[in-house]
C-alpha cells in the first residue's frame, strides 16, 4: 500500500531548512550550532525560523570560533547528541580542520568503536555569486582525502533534503557541502516530512551512449547545459550527478564509462589533487580496457580562487565542457 505524499515546491536552501526542521522534530538529540544561525537564521537563511520554533537550547548561536564550536560539537557527539554544525562558508572551515581531521574523523578508529562522533558539518561552498574573496572555495578534496569522513554534495532541493536527513542519521561524521550558487537557482517538488536519499549513490540525470559526463554540486547544471548543446550536435551524454563524493558510486560510474568508453569530469575545484583525479583512477581501476579516449577533466585552475571579477574565467562553463566533450568524442 502506498500513501499519497504531500509535496512542497522548494529551493535548495529551503530544502536544507526543511530537513533541519524535520530532524529537530523527529529526534531530541539533534542540535544545531553555528554563527548567526539563531535569530538571524544563518547568513543564507538556511536555519530561518528554527530557533523561534525549537528554542535557544536546540538552535545555538555560538561564539565566532570555528575550531571552538566544531570541537564542542565533537564533545557533544561523544556524549550522546547529534550536532549539526554550520560553517558560514567552506573557506572559513580551516581553523576547524584540525578538530575534524584529527578527532572527528578518527575517534571511532582510535577507540575501536567505543567512542563515535555522529555529527554533520554543513558548509556552503563554491564561486559564482560575486562573493567577497575567501567566500568561494570548493576544497572538497581536502575532506575526501580524510579517512573517516563522508562527504556529500547535493545539486537539487530533493536530494539536499533527503541526503541531509541521511547524514544526520549516519553513525559517522559527514561533511555536507551546499552549492551556494544553486541555493535559490531553481525550485523542485520536495516531499513533506522525513525521507532519505542513500549516501554513496549517484544519480543519472540524462541517458546517452556517446560520452559520460560526471559532475557534482554547482557543476551539475553546467554539465547538463553542455550535454544539451552536445545533443543538438548529435552527441548523446550520460550525465551523472555524484551526490556523494566519498564514498563514490563506483558501480554507476563504472557501468556508464564501460558503456560510453569516453568520459568528461567537471570539477569546480583546482585541478591538482582534486576529486576528478580520483575518478580517473577509479575508471582506470574498473574500466581501463573499455576506454576509447583519455578521460578529460574540466576544472578550476591551480590558482587560489580568484576575486570575483575573474570568477567567470576561473569556473568551468558549459562552453568549456562542450569543448571537452567534442574533443573526447573526436579523439
Amino acid at each position: 500500500m502506498t500513501t499519497a505524499v504531500n509535496t512542497k515546491t522548494l529551493t535548495l536552501v529551503q530544502a536544507v531548512n526543511d530537513a533541519l526542521r524535520t530532524m529537530l522534530k523527529e529526534r531530541d538529540d539533534v542540535i544545531l550550532l553555528g554563527e548567526d544561525i539563531g535569530k538571524n537564521g544563518g547568513v543564507f537563511r538556511a536555519t530561518e525560523g528554527l530557533q523561534a520554533e525549537f528554542g535557544e537550547d536546540r538552535v545555538i548561536d555560538t561564539p565566532l570560533s570555528e575550531a571552538g564550536f566544531t570541537g564542542a560539537a565533537i564533545g557533544m557527539a561523544l556524549n550522546g547528541f547529534r550536532p549539526v554544525v554550520e560553517i558560514q562558508f567552506l573557506g572559513f572551515i580551516y581553523p576547524a580542520y584540525e578538530q575534524i581531521m584529527t578527532h572527528a574523523a578518527r575517534m571511532r578508529a582510535r577507540t575501536m568503536g567505543h567512542f563515535t562522533v555522529p555529527m554533520v558539518i554543513r558548509a556552503p561552498y563554491g564561486a559564482g555569486v560575486r562573493a567577497p574573496e575567501i567566500h568561494s572555495d570548493s576544497t572538497e578534496a581536502l575532506f575526501t582525502h580524510m579517512p573517516g569522513m563522508k562527504v556529500i554534495c547535493p545539486a537539487s532541493p530533493y536530494d539536499a533534503k533527503g541526503l541531509l536527513i541521511a547524514a544526520i542519521e549516519d553513525p559517522d561524521p559527514v561533511l555536507f557541502l551546499e552549492p551556494m550558487r544553486s541555493y535559490r537557482a531553481f525550485r523542485e517538488e520536495v516531499p513533506e516530512g522525513k525521507y532519505t536519499v542513500e549516501i554513496g549513490k549517484a544519480k543519472k540525470l540524462r541517458e546517452g551512449d556517446d560520452v559520460t559526463v560526471i559532475a557534482w554540486g554547482a557543476m551539475v547544471p553546467v554539465a547538463l547545459k553542455a550535454a544539451e548543446s552536445a545533443a543538438k550536435k548529435g552527441i548523446h551524454a550520460d550525465v551523472i550527478d555524484l551526490r556523494t563524493l566519498y564514498p563514490l558510486d563506483k558501480d554507476m560510474i563504472a557501468a556508464s564509462v564501460q558503456k560510453t568508453g569516453r568520459t568528461v569530469i567537471v570539477q569546480e575545484a583546482h585541478a591538482t589533487g582534486g576529486l576528478a583525479s580520483d575518478i580517473v583512477a577509479l575508471i582506470n581501476d574498473t574500466s581501463f580496457l573499455y576506454q576509447k579516449a583519455p578521460v578529460a577533466r574540466v576544472t578550476g585552475f591551480d590558482v587560489p580562487v580568484p576575486f570575483f571579477a575573474y570568477e567567470d574565467d576561473y569556473l568551468p562553463t558549459p562552453a568549456r565542457v562542450l569543448h571537452a566533450i567534442e574533443k573526447t568524442v573526436n579523439f
Partner: peptide
C-alpha cells in the same frame, strides 16, 4: 584540541 571538546561534552551533561 581537547579543551573545546571537553567544553562540549560538559555542555551535553548540563543539557541532560
Amino acid at each position: 584540541t581537547q579543551l573545546p571538546q571537553a567544553a562540549g561534552a560538559a555542555y551535553a551533561e548540563k543539557r541532560k
